[in-house]
Every structure is written in C-alpha cells, then in structure tokens.
Design a protein around this nucleic acid. Structure first.
Length: 406
RNA sequence: GCCAAGGUGGCAGAAUGGUUAAUGCGGCGGCCUGCAGAGCCGCUUCCUGGGGGUUCGAUUCCCUCCCUUGGCUCCA
C-alpha cells in the first residue's frame, strides 16, 4: 500500500516512491546539539519514525539519514559558559539527545552523520557556489544570493518579497538582488571556535550547506522524503533547495514534509525561549507509550498545544487501552470479540497510516475496539484465536511504535 | 504589514449540500461490585466566529469582516 504524504512545497498528497534499485531515501534535519531534547523534537522525529515503520511494514527498503549539527554558534556560546570545547559539549549533548529519542522507541536512523565530518564537502559546495558569481562578501561573511525562480520551484521567502510578487502563471517569482533570499555560506572564524581552511582563509561553512552536502553524498538528490519542523521551512529548507537547484539543477527532495510545532503556554517551544517541556522529564512522568499516545493523538501536520492536563488524560486513557487489550489476549470462553476483529482493526490502522499518517483516526479505531471488548461479558479472545489475534496486535504495535503486549 | 493554518457542545476533536452534527474526555444520576480493570446504563435536549451571497435547502460552496496561532534568516 502506497504511503501518501502531503508535500509542503506543492501542497499536494504524493505517494512515497523509491528510485529504481534503491531504498527510499529519507533525510531528516537533526538537532543542533547544545542542549537536551524537548517534546517538540520528539513529535517531529515521531513523524519520521512512523514514515519509516510504515514503509518497512510494507516491506519497502528504507535508508534513513538524520544529521547532527555539532558545530554552530550556540554550541560555542554554551561551551564557553561551561568551560569545555565545542567538540566535548557536542558529543555529550548528542549522546543525551539520542538516548532520549531511543527511550521513546524512535527507530535509530541508519546513518547519523556529524556536520564536522563533512566540512570538506561543504567547503567544496562553497567553492562551486562562488563560481556562479552569486556570492558576495559582507564583512566577515560571504553571502549567496539565489536567482529568481518560478514560484512553484521553491518555498516563498520572507513577507516583503511575497507581498510584491505578481502571481502570474509561468512568470518568475521576483527575488530581488541582495534581498531576503540570501544566505550565509562562509564566515571567517578562528580557534577555539570551529574553523577550517577555506576559499577565503580560515573559517566555517554556513549551516544550510550541511544538509545539502550530506544528502547529496549519502542519498543522492533528490531525496525521496525530506523535512523537519515547520520552523525550518524558511530559511533552512529554502536555502538547501536553492543549493540543489543551483548546483544540481534539481530539487532537494521529491516530497517535503513538515510536522506541526508543539506549543506550550501559547507560544512555540524553543530552547532560546526557555519555555519547554523536556523529553526526558515527560518520559519519566508518562513513559514512552503514554507519551506516544498523547503526541500522536492529533494529526501530525497540525500544531500541537501541549498541556499537562492533556498529557495526564492521555496517560490514563492509554492505561485503560493497554490493560483491556492485555486482559483480552488471555484466551477465555465465550468471547464475542475475536481475532477477526483484531485483523480488521490492524487493517484499518494500516490504511489510515498510509493516508498521510492519520494517527488520530488510528487511535479512534483502537478506542472503538477496546470499547467493544469492554462491553463483552467475557472480555477474552476466544479459545484457539489467540495466536492470530496476537499477530494482528503485533502488526499494530510495529506500525505505531506502541507497546501493548508486554 | 505580508505569508500560512485555523475558528464546531464545558474541553478535545470528526463529518456532511438535506431526517434528532460522530466519538472521546469531563460533569450529573443510577446500577453493579470483591481471584483483569472499577465497570456498566442513562442524561448532559435548541454547539458549526459575525455579516452577506449561491441554493428548494449550508456547518459544508463563494465573498467579506473579526478573532486565534505560527512563520517572516536562533529554531524540530
């Protein structure tokens, strides 16, 4: 069954397909490691976790890459505060971040390249961009200014540009020279800050080049599925896509996906604002399954308003679902709800996940199933059906990442 | 300001050009209860942001206004 995902760039639902002879290439923008993960990160990576689970359940090979940005200004700042090197801090935070994602049972990407290992490739990208004649110096920074492009080729940049745009079919989207579409490709910088030799002396390559260099080398462009939180659309995914268009004359990705951000107390959770719920704390309080049940309970594309009350409710609902299903699986006499129903539910789950990962509907099916079991005086799967029922449940478990049986 | 997504019962959140607008949570009332779990039943009767328009008929389509939230080079 094809997995349909809504592509953010075109706004259309598109089937995830792999190129001939290759696995599906998924490239996910990973974290900048200077602090722990919060539940917003968790929800974003849950999205890609479900993409992968679905494809693998359908026996479609997947190659899943998530980068780790391990050099960046904020890491330097934090490292200086702590009196350690940026490499030390980044290694430590990366380990903690990945441990938390793992605790949520998010499948580990097949490859987790660190940005610092791709500096030569990034520097080569800088050189090739410079050859286009579109790079200009601005103090200690070198900026790349993208050319005008038809509107449907890349994400809209900032407001001013969009507001002046004349949306005539087939006409280029006016992207002014030196305007908001430009982005930094190289910055002069010296130790102890991260720095390497480059086209204009020692310095550090721009962040946006990182994902291009890695995706190009590890997966080949365009990658089949690419994304991250909606806050990355501009400038990050815009810039990556510009690089791909400039150097390879093809888009960065065939499908861009952007799960909705998690908000808390009315605004976006972010490290810089400090208004966040840490993943580790949430895991300790609720456990991985209840947390999944909460975070996946609404369409992943929509914004998610985190409340502690909502988290508690979800946790108690999850307990009920798990308890009832575990009890049901102990075979008994006269059970009305049997393996056939389990198989139906598993098939509904499969179908709803294939339709743009409609986890909210998936959960509705599970709730209805549990309610049916609870309304059954026996409350057990009939004798002789346990094996088939358990198999159906295991399929649901695999696809959703929820652990029901144990 | 511009771009985008939304505004449905106490809350969350579906659905549909047409009988009493799903479901879950919560609340209220009642029943049952002791080798899974407290569960089960009933009630919560006039909820679709405002205003226009299209239509025999709109929550559903169109226009407009209002409001909320996010983005607009730190961001998952």
């Amino acid at each position: 069954m094809d997995l349909l995902l809504r592509d953010t760039l075109s706004g259309r639902a598109r089937p995830v397909r792999h190129r001939r002879g290759r696995p599906v290439g998924i490239y996910v923008c990973g974290p900048t490691v200077y602090d722990g993960a919060h539940v917003g990160h968790a929800r974003t990576y849950l999205f890609f976790d479900l993409v992968r689970r679905h494809l693998e359940a359908e026996r479609i090979p997947v190659h899943h890459v998530m980068n780790v940005t391990n050099f960046e200004d904020k890491i330097d700042t934090r490292a200086a505060e702590l009196g350690v090197t940026w490499r030390t801090l980044a290694l430590r935070e990366e380990a903690g971040f990945l441990r938390d994602l793992h605790a949520l049972r998010i499948l580990s990407p097949h490859v987790r390249p660190r940005a610092s290992a791709f500096v030569p490739q990034m520097t080569e990208v800088v050189r090739r961009l410079a050859r286009t004649g579109r790079v200009h110096r601005q103090g200690d920074e070198w900026m790349y200014t993208p050319p005008a492009r038809p509107r449907e080729v890349n994400f809209a940049t900032a407001s001013e540009l969009a507001s002046h745009a004349v949306h005539e079919p087939g006409h280029p989207f006016p992207l002014g020279e030196g305007a908001a579409g430009e982005f930094m490709v190289w910055k002069r910088q010296d130790p102890p800050r991260p720095s390497w030799p480059g086209p204009w002396g020692r310095g550090t390559p721009g962040w946006h080049l990182e994902c291009y260099a890695m995706a190009n080398q590890l997966l080949g462009l365009p990658v089949d599925v690419h994304g991250g939180g909606t806050d990355l659309i501009f400038p990050h995914h815009f810039a990556e896509n510009e690089v791909a268009l400039a150097l390879r004359h093809r888009p960065f990705a065939r499908i861009f996906v952007h799960p909705g951000l998690v908000l808390w107390e009315g605004s976006k959770m972010s490290k810089s604002k400090g208004n966040l719920v840490r993943l580790r704390a949430a895991l300790q309080e609720a456990g991985p399954d209840a947390l999944r049940w909460y975070l996946l309970g609404r369409p992943l594309i929509d914004r998610f308003h985190w409340t502690s009350e909502g988290a508690h409710r979800s946790a108690s609902e999850w307990r009920r679902i798990q308890r009832t299903l575990q009890h049901w699986l102990r075979a008994g006499e006269g059970g009305r709800v049997g393996a056939v129903r389990a198989r139906e539910v598993a098939e509904e789950v499969r179908r709803d996940l294939a339709a743009d990962l409609a986890t909210d509907r998936v959960f509705d099916h599970l709730r209805a199933w549990v309610t049916a079991i609870e309304g059954d005086p026996s409350g057990h799967v009939p004798f002789g059906e346990r094996g088939r029922a358990a198999a159906a449940l295991r399929d649901v478990e695999w696809r959703t990442g929820l652990r029901i049986l144990t």
